[in-house]
């Protein structure tokens, strides 16, 4: 019995790093990634997929010292590996098969640059607005019990499930030139939302809000309300406790909500195209080029946008990644 246990624990010690922490068993995947990339570049897609599946099985096998019943895990790993392959293949393919010079030339096109600026800035504005309104709502949903709370939570999730073209039409009937709010705004204040920059912001806000609200709520739920009580017993007002205790403990959750909202906003096409086809966002521009010039012409633009989105997404994720500290 004792001997068997020693035998089991022996392979684990081989995976110790210098600082004493064990290697992740999945770090073996790193070995396979270069092969994977090389095969992709050579257009040997089936080989790349095989490498990924092998890596998954290999990683599972490395874990066998701690986990009993490896067979189902191997099946899960292959299934998971195929899924990852399905996500990674189109993206990596696009990145590796576009000539860099064509990407640069596309980036210098004034129409492209204006579309990128409009999309990114409108997404930022939509994200800031969604934070301003979403953080208080998330806090209420996390802290208070009230009649109709389930209904409110359902309403918050609605923009996720409504097809976005329908959202665009619905927004148009409210904020369009003849809409129930759009018409008086145009008549009284001469503000036009449809086919304007602010129409884009509006559509982005509509589809992005749920992510901020839900992430805020989940973040606030993780902070014990009694932590705020203690702060208040020490003299902080409710707002003071919120800003000195709750926000410092939840900013990562708020930031990851904001990232998702922002990512949702820059990828929004359906509702934006309906409420504000002009000025053109990157998605509208891409759609137009694809319609008029075909898909090979669109490829460098798509790659450029992919690079921008990936860079910002990875950067923000790195900031929002939780520190390995137990609270």
């Amino acid at each position: 019995m004792n001997g068997a246990r020693q035998k089991q624990s022996a392979p684990r010690e081989r995976h110790q790093r210098l600082d004493g922490r064990p290697f992740s068993p999945y770090s073996w995947l790193l070995v396979f990634i270069p092969f994977f990339a090389v095969f992709l570049c050579l257009n040997l897609y089936w080989l790349a997929g095989a490498v990924l599946a092998t890596a998954a099985v290999w990683a599972t096998w490395r874990r066998r010292s701690t986990t009993r019943g490896t067979a189902p895990l191997a099946v899960f790993s292959v299934a998971g590996g195929l899924l990852i392959f399905f996500i990674v293949l189109p993206i990596v393919n696009l990145l590796f098969t576009t000539e860099p010079s064509r990407i640069v030339r596309t980036a210098l096109d004034p129409a492209v640059r204006s579309a990128i600026f409009i999309t990114l800035s409108a997404a930022c504005i939509a994200t800031v607005i969604s934070l301003l309104f979403g953080v208080p709502l998330g806090y209420l949903l996390a802290r208070e019990r009230f009649a109709g709370k389930a209904v409110v939570e359902g309403i918050v999730d609605m923009p996720v499930v409504i097809p976005h073209t329908i959202a665009g039409i619905a927004l148009l009937f409210v904020f369009g030139r003849a809409g129930i709010l759009g018409a008086p705004l145009k008549a009284r204040l001469d503000i036009q939302l449809s086919d304007s920059y602010w129409g884009i912001v509006l559509a982005m806000l509509f589809v992005g809000l749920p992510f901020v609200v839900n992430h805020c709520r989940d973040g606030f739920l993780k902070v014990d309300p009694r932590m705020e009580y203690v702060a208040r017993s020490l003299g902080a007002t409710r707002l003071g406790a919120f800003f000195r205790v709750t926000i410092p403990l939840t900013w990562r959750a708020l930031l990851s909500g904001a990232i998702l909202t922002w990512a949702r906003a820059i990828s929004e096409f359906g509702s934006v195209a309906i409420i504000a086809y002009y000025p053109k966002t990157i998605n509208t521009l891409l759609f137009e080029w694809y319609n008029f010039f075909g898909y090979t012409y669109t490829k460098p633009l798509a790659t450029l946008l992919l690079l921008i989105a990936l860079a910002i997404f990875i950067g923000l994720r790195a900031i929002a990644a939780p520190k390995r500290v137990e609270h």
Partner: peptide, 28 residues
């Protein structure tokens, strides 16, 4: 409200502010 009562509170599970070190917890 609690902030105007001047009463100290200590809970079973301490509830120290995890983002602050001990001296800043004390000085809160």
């Amino acid at each position: 409200p609690p902030e105007k009562r001047g009463i100290g509170m200590v809970y079973q599970d301490y509830l120290l502010f995890p983002h602050l070190d001990v001296s800043r917890n004390l000085a809160f």
